[in-house]
Amino acid sequence: MNQLATLSIYPAPVLVTAAGERAAYRFLEFFTAQIRNPNTRRAYAEAVGDFCSWMEARGLPSIAAVGSIHIAAYVEELGHTHSAPTVKQRLAAIRMMFN
Rank of each mutant, 00 (worst) to 15 (best):
M1Y: 11
Q3N: 03
A5G: 02
L7M: 07
S8V: 04
S8I: 04
S8A: 12
I9M: 09
I9F: 04
P11W: 01
P11N: 08
A12C: 03
A12D: 00
A12F: 01
P13Q: 03
V14D: 05
V14Q: 09
L15Y: 06
V16T: 03
V16D: 11
T17S: 15
A19D: 07
A19N: 02
A19F: 03
E21T: 03
E21K: 09
R22D: 01
A23W: 05
A23E: 10
A24V: 05
Y25W: 12
R26P: 01
R26F: 09
R26V: 09
F27G: 05
F27M: 10
L28E: 05
L28M: 13
F30L: 03
F31H: 03
T32Q: 13
A33K: 15
A33M: 09
Q34F: 02
Q34D: 09
I35E: 01
I35M: 03
R36Y: 00
N37V: 01
N37K: 14
N37S: 14
P38S: 04
N39Y: 12
N39S: 09
N39Q: 12
T40I: 10
A43D: 03
Y44C: 04
Y44I: 05
A45T: 04
A45F: 06
E46M: 08
E46H: 07
V48S: 04
D50R: 13
F51R: 05
C52E: 04
C52W: 04
S53W: 07
W54R: 14
E56L: 15
A57P: 01
R58S: 08
R58F: 04
R58H: 11
R58L: 11
G59S: 12
P61D: 10
P61S: 13
P61C: 05
A64S: 07
A65N: 02
A65D: 04
V66K: 08
V66H: 06
S68P: 02
S68T: 15
I69T: 14
H70E: 14
H70D: 14
H70P: 00
I71D: 13
I71Y: 14
I71C: 14
I71P: 08
A72D: 14
A72I: 03
A72N: 09
A73S: 13
V75E: 11
V75I: 15
V75K: 14
V75N: 06
E76T: 15
E77R: 15
L78R: 05
S83V: 01
P85E: 02
P85T: 00
T86Y: 03
V87P: 01
V87D: 00
Q89N: 12
R90V: 05
R90D: 02
R90A: 13
R90Q: 10
L91G: 05
A92L: 11
I94N: 12
I94V: 15
R95Q: 11
R95N: 10
M96N: 14
M96E: 14
N99V: 06
N99W: 02
N99T: 12
N99D: 13
